[in-house]
Design a protein around this nucleic acid. Sequence first.
DNA 1: AGCAGACCGGAACGATCCGTTCCACTGATA
DNA 2: TATCAGTGGAACGGATCGTTCCGGTCTGCT
Lengths: 213, 213
Amino acid sequence: MPTPEKTLGGRRAQAARNDEVILEAARAVFLDDPKAPIAAVAERAGVGISALYRRYASKEDLLRRLCHDGLRRYIAEADTALAEPDDWTAFSTFLAGVVDADVHSLTVHLAGTFTPTEEMGRDAMRAGELAAALFDRARASGRLRPDVVVQDLGLLLEACAAVRVPDSKRTAELRRRQLAVLVAGLSAVPATDPLPGPAPAAGEFDWRWRRRE
Amino acid sequence: MPTPEKTLGGRRAQAARNDEVILEAARAVFLDDPKAPIAAVAERAGVGISALYRRYASKEDLLRRLCHDGLRRYIAEADTALAEPDDWTAFSTFLAGVVDADVHSLTVHLAGTFTPTEEMGRDAMRAGELAAALFDRARASGRLRPDVVVQDLGLLLEACAAVRVPDSKRTAELRRRQLAVLVAGLSAVPATDPLPGPAPAAGEFDWRWRRRE
DNA sequence: AGCAGACCGGAACGATCCGTTCCACTGATA
DNA sequence: TATCAGTGGAACGGATCGTTCCGGTCTGCT
């Protein structure tokens, strides 16, 4: 019997591929609209609804999985950042990593739509500890204004997640820019680097006034 | 015939009072959830659904009115701020006023749920001009970092509107704090004032994980 | 070749939910 | 007392969505 993972053709392979495709589609869809219907995920993934329900017992299950993945990603970003020797760089790359991964939207806007597992509780606690460690190092570096606290990071990430335009690539750019402003605001020393990304242009937000769906 | 406005008792007076009550309730409800049902507004206002439909032909009508009111409030804040002699103070009080009035949520999260009137288009344009005027004065004061543009203000306001906790009083405090960080980030000179309001506390955001409705 | 079953697409179902309409009722006014 | 603007809230009709279910397809094994 060949190892199933190596079989590129065949039913098993399609199923394995669908595992990925479905998760990716779900991520994209629920990131765009946390209350999106299950059918939207199936459509985006290019599969039928059955393919979803074969993998997850319910919508809540899928949401839980997605949120937990986000949490793990958050922890991974923190771990990566902690390996960086320079305290301030570790701090700011962590934030950039979380913003780029769009983890906050997943974690925050999906939380409350399902009953969390115990493991998620533990992971959430660990995530908090890692963020605190990064924050403490940033504080030790002396570049933080003294009146900032760890919990401000939550607000900061939320602020970045709030930036959203129809094009997701552009959204990422604008978030980086917003993050740069916020980090500069947290810093005790004046910023030296220029704000990243093309500045928002006149009329770039006019789409808001167009009628939606 | 007595002037209707001065009649404190009676049906007319109740109707006049309801005009206010309904608008206020609608503001509160749709601020909390832009997709809230009409019935929620009626309940919050303590009136029946009829009282709503007597005043507005449809939900869309009410939304339009609310959004337009928000736009007018934005303009009023800008006008007030423009009277301030110091350029930088004018700029920052304008932002604080808009954040405090929670105008951005109304304008932005409600936009797109109705077809705007021409007058709203004109007001939106005027709002943009006033904001630009304030921004230009801030720039002229030399306290702005050179790579910031007017359009960044939109992102900044959105970031503040994204801050939200169940208690609205606390929300206002946290937004002020967030605004202070952002304005510090826009500034070319290091901030001197300490961050306002009680700093966010540990566990203050745990409510997110509690199951919602 | 032939069969069992894993896997899938998508129609159908049942349960909400929501905007709007409708009607009976109240109380101020004339 | 007659009128009627103003009101509360039940009822209606349409839309939405999570989930189930059935018929079909392809794979791997015998």
